[in-house]
Design a protein around this nucleic acid. Structure first.
Lengths: 199, 199
DNA sequence: GTAGTTCTATGGCGATCACCATAGAACTAC
DNA sequence: GTAGTTCTATGGTGATCGCCATAGAACTAC
């Protein structure tokens, strides 16, 4: 064999890109296979479940990126607000760099398929739950004075909404409004972390 | 003729319903025509521009509903917060009643097509602008102490995000978080309207 | 080197896609 | 009642959809 499962990764990468741009039904397998530069026959070897299995892999793969970015943004931030601004700012710049075509990799599939594909709905719920859990851990060192789960939900609501509105207006403004809403939500939350228990 | 353009309205109504559920590419014309109980040949008489023209009509038709609901909710509200709660509460209940399938009629088309269809992108931007304008007029009687356009953008960001997160979790909670973020954003904005200039 | 597994490569399946040509029915205007 | 317009009704187009059968190449294990 050429390389162990090199083609499979290319399939998933390509699927993430194209699904973000035009949704699940907006992209055909032919285009994915062509852009992945993989042979047509390889596809059903790596994904016996067909297009739906590919989409699930794409959801889980892409869904792992946001917790990573979250942890990276909050890890070195002096306070909560700065961390959130770094996170949202990064996502907004990436979105703009794609000419407002590549938004949330989850939402574009969600609106096309849920709840008609229980498999994909389940995968989306799964990665979203993971993000909320990751948020709770990443913000433990801040004293946010609020239920971290509710705060995580607010951030997701703001982010998803910003991705949509920014796509409509081709503007970063919705992301700025999102940040303002997040940090205003739990008031004067810019409180620095407790240095006492820092290890 | 049977009735003047009765079939055309059914086409649009059906399109709004199905596009909300599964997006632009997730629904075929055959299904729309069948569910509209209209003959196949009528379609291209009423929509020479094909599926894309139908989608534009659906966007503009459905897009007119939110300004209507906005005005209705804020008209009799004693204060801004109450009005927003009524608006969001109504949308959330309707969403739940559809078993979390019929969310924003705009977003599902947007994520499938923009920016690959300039026609649909333009239509979406148009109805969104109309909503922002309507918001400014509907809230003039409140002294919100904030740029109405920025506040309108916050509401749209919150609403769109809530529609997505509620679809994931099949829960009204995202809408509650959205309301909290909106009203917390401009602080103690529950101030009653000036009764002086009321006509 | 032979067997077995992994992956590539090609071709084509039935079904559905959006779209359109054509003919006739239903109604208005004169 | 005839002409003209509006709308219905049927049938079918080429293209693309997701899916799969089959064969062979590339590599590992013994």
């Amino acid at each position: 064999m050429a390389r162990p499962s090199d083609a499979k990764a290319r399939f998933i990468d390509t699927a993430v890109i194209l699904f973000r741009e035009r949704g699940y039904h907006g992209v055909g397998l032919a285009e994915i296979i062509a852009q992945a530069k993989a042979p047509k026959g390889s596809f059903y070897f790596h994904f016996p479940g067909g297009k739906e299995e590919l989409a699930e892999c794409a959801i889980r793969y892409a869904g792992g990126y946001l917790p990573y970015m979250l942890q990276k943004s909050l890890r070195d931030a002096p306070d909560f607000r700065t961390g959130i601004e770094a996170l949202v700012g990064h996502l907004a710049r990436a979105f703009e760099a794609s000419n407002w075509t590549k938004g949330c990799p989850i939402a574009s599939i969600l609106l096309d398929t849920a709840p008609y594909s229980e498999r994909l709905s389940q995968a989306i719920r799964s990665v979203t739950d993971e993000w909320i859990t990751a948020f709770g851990e990443a913000t433990r060192r801040f004293d946010l004075g609020e239920d971290p789960r509710a705060l995580a939900m607010r951030i997701l609501v703001s982010l998803e909404g910003a991705w949509i509105m920014a796509r409509i207006f081709k503007s970063r403004e919705p992301f700025h409004e999102a940040v303002d809403m997040i940090v205003a939500g739990h008031a004067i939350s810019g409180a620095p972390p407790q240095p006492a228990s820092a290890g």
